[in-house]
């Protein structure tokens, strides 16, 4: 399982099971997950392979099945790492909501498998299955809200440090 999981493609059943463990999709019923699984493309990346590049058009949204992904910014020729992502994390969600090009770059640090869904297909899915779509959008809202609270707490901590 350990090594061969990267060699073989995932069956539909495995995919449906896996999607249930990803925070954005964990509220979906099995049938709803089966429907959205249709829209995912499986992509395999070698270690150090570029996943996407800053300023390129943002076409898909990735969920990491296994491996490790480094997200970084390039400013004035300098690289600044933002985060390291592992299984069940996702990248490219900003592109889903904003008509913007990629704001950061991502490369695979290890051999990795990612599931990709295009922004347009995600919108199509939400249009077609509004109930499931609402659950997904609620989850995104939850994630963004949690992130905002964390940010506030961070800045408060910083303020108290200064004081």
């Amino acid at each position: 399982m350990k090594k061969s999981s990267n060699e073989t493609t995932f069956s539909e059943k495995e995919m449906i099971q896996f999607l249930g463990k990803v925070s954005v999709f964990d509220k979906l019923t099995k049938n709803e997950r089966k429907n959205i699984a249709d829209y995912f493309y499986e992509r395999k990346f070698k270690a150090e392979e570029q996943i996407f590049k800053q300023d390129y058009p943002s076409v898909v949204f990735y969920i990491i099945k296994n491996g490790e992904v480094k997200v970084f910014l390039k400013r004035r020729g300098k690289e600044k790492e933002i985060s390291r992502l592992k299984s069940r994390d996702f990248i490219g969600e900003i592109g889903v909501f904003l008509e913007k090009n990629r704001v950061a770059s991502a490369i695979a640090k290890k051999e990795s498998t990612l599931f990709a869904i295009s922004k347009k297909d995600l919108k199509k899915f939400i249009d077609k299955f509004p109930k499931a779509g609402t659950k997904i959008l609620y989850k995104f809202g939850e994630i963004v809200s949690t992130y905002l609270i964390d940010q506030n707490e961070d800045s408060e901590e910083n303020e108290s440090k200064i004081l």
Partner: peptide, 25 residues
Amino acid sequence: ERKFLKSFFSIIPNRYFEFLLHLFE
């Protein structure tokens, strides 16, 4: 149609995956 799309894109190298998907859409 989804299966056809998936098998078509599965042979596309990562470098051109998003580009071709973008083009197709």
